[in-house]
Write a protein that binds this DNA or RNA. Sequence first.
DNA 1: ATGGTTTTTACTGCGTC
DNA 2: GACGCGGTAAAAACCAT
Length: 316
Amino acid sequence: MSDTETRTSVRESESETTTESTGECPECDGSVVHDEEHGETACENCGLIVDEDEIDLGPEWRAYDARDRAEKSRVGAPATKLIHDEGLSTNVGWQDRDGYGRTLSADQRRRAQRLRKWNERYRTQDSKDRNLRQALGEIDRMASALGLPKDIRETASVIYRRALDENLLPGRSIEGVATAALYGAARQAGTPRSLDELERVSRVGRRKLTRTYRYVCRELGLEVEPTKPEQYLPRLTSALELDEDVERRARSLLSTARREGLHSGRNPVGLAAAAVYASSLLTNHKVTQEAVGEAASVSEVTIRNRYTELLDVVED
DNA sequence: ATGGTTTTTACTGCGTC
DNA sequence: GACGCGGTAAAAACCAT
């Protein structure tokens, strides 16, 4: 087969797909031509359409972008969730054979060995990269939604990186671990955000969050002090637009409460909310229980309970 | 899973503006 | 009558075992 022959045959087949002479026009003796793109068979000369009901051999669906195509297309290798890239990446075969089934020379075998190794390395590297990128994006998003400063985001990303390195991710969602990392980082920095607040900006539910948080803490040996009610005071008072002295008074209430053992077993946020409410009464800057409860996302009943206890121990 | 504890939900009555 | 507050019972959530 010569070069020129193949070239001309390709040319012909190309032209045939667009216009194909299928006979003579019944009207004018011109040649009838098939136009695949428009799905018509028409006379070249007079434009008479002989046949327009063409069988379309293309896919019956339309794809508007790559993602669409991937979803609608029914061809290609089966994807599996069991492999991190769903089995869609390159693999270097383990048999030391070439494409024709011949065994490889020692030299080629070594080369294939290296290829396998590096391919594997790059593939996991890639997935970790993508994973990290997504997680850091999530952390950033949630942190800015919660108004957390940069250094906390950095702590969170360090925690996440460690979790990734220790292989804590399999079986857990990126989002979940990212949220847990941020929660822990905020607590470590002494500016904790409550679970409610985290839940509001995260895509994972409370149960999942607390579970993965505990898990990550345990596995990484994260030392996080239990949150103190005092840590919520600044944000509560500013959210309610209360003066400095309200916060100060609340702080002193909380310290005596601690001496009396009111802290144990109670939700720190509820205690803080009660302290703010009590302090607002004592300093004549009254706010309603409802408002405090709203700001702290704690029920009024809890505020009432804590605050009566608070006043009890402060009395004497 | 279970039991004990805390928190929430929902409803009530009381006093005040 | 609406509002803020106190109280209660039952449900729900949480935690250690």
